[in-house]
Design a protein around this nucleic acid. Structure first.
Lengths: 137, 137
DNA sequence: AATTACCCTATCTATTTAATAGAGTAAACA
DNA sequence: TGTTTACTCTATTAAATAGATAGGGTAATT
């Protein structure tokens, strides 16, 4: 199941991408328009800023804005920040690899075998989609 | 993240599929060979039996066995039983559809848009893989 | 009839998710 | 320079879920 964090994060990013100008948008504005708890959204936007997806500006007229063009923002990056590893088990993770302690041999492990295919399928989707693809025309 | 329930279930199914004969295998045997808590495994095998994947036999020489040939057992069915809906959000689920209460319009929802593609990618994998594909040669 | 192994119910703990509160800090503008 | 505005951080809490465990009951073989 997709976490609300990811759901909210995607909605916020899409909201920013849909702005005509590139002026900063306040948290309060996004939270109101997208029905998201303001405090929760705060922490989500913060993590997106710290990982280089968003920029922020303080003071009057401040808020959050996209640093790159929507079509330059890959879903692989966004999903890893918001949802964590794309792989469903650490033993098939590209960026967060870990050996399963209860598994004697990855090469003959059926879970590994299936989850490798699942990972590849998901990666393909996330690599082929950018934020621009999520904005409705 | 994949739940341990699913992980254990897949390992147990693969273990059964790898048997030379089709004699029932005891829970204790599977739990020992695959490093799985016996009681937990009990409940997993039970749900696989109730959904028509496994059969069971009581008394001496009893245990669990596959009802169908491994290549007839689709991962779509197995995953739905063990892990639940394949879709990550209910609004794109084929078998467990539900409207998101916080989303005004699915057609313009970015989460819906992305998760639809993710669902299709995952479905494709699960439809194209059977239990037979998980057994190492 | 006794054995073997499945079947069911209940409980407990740890972890994670989601939401909330409150105080602190930095930047913009008059 | 001071005030406003809005971002930033820490901590707390409630709810849900996962995972594990215990113990008793029941059905089918031999």
């Amino acid at each position: 199941m997709l976490s609300k964090k990811t759901k909210y994060g995607l909605k916020a990013l899409t909201f920013l991408a849909a702005q005509k100008d590139k002026l900063p948008v306040q948290i309060a504005e996004i939270s109101k328009q997208e029905n998201i708890s303001q405090k929760f959204l705060e922490s989500i936007l913060l993590s997106l800023r710290k990982t280089g997806i968003l920029g922020s500006k303080k003071g009057k007229g401040g808020g959050y804005y996209l640093i790159k063009e929507p079509k330059e923002i890959l879903m692989t990056d966004v999903m890893r920040i918001l949802e964590g590893p794309i792989a469903l088990v650490p033993c098939v993770s590209l960026n967060f690899y870990e050996k399963c302690e209860d598994c004697p041999d990855e090469k003959t492990c059926s879970v590994n075998k299936l989850m490798l295919k699942v990972r590849d399928a998901n990666l393909a989707v996330y690599r082929n989609n950018t934020l621009a693809d999520l904005v409705s025309i």
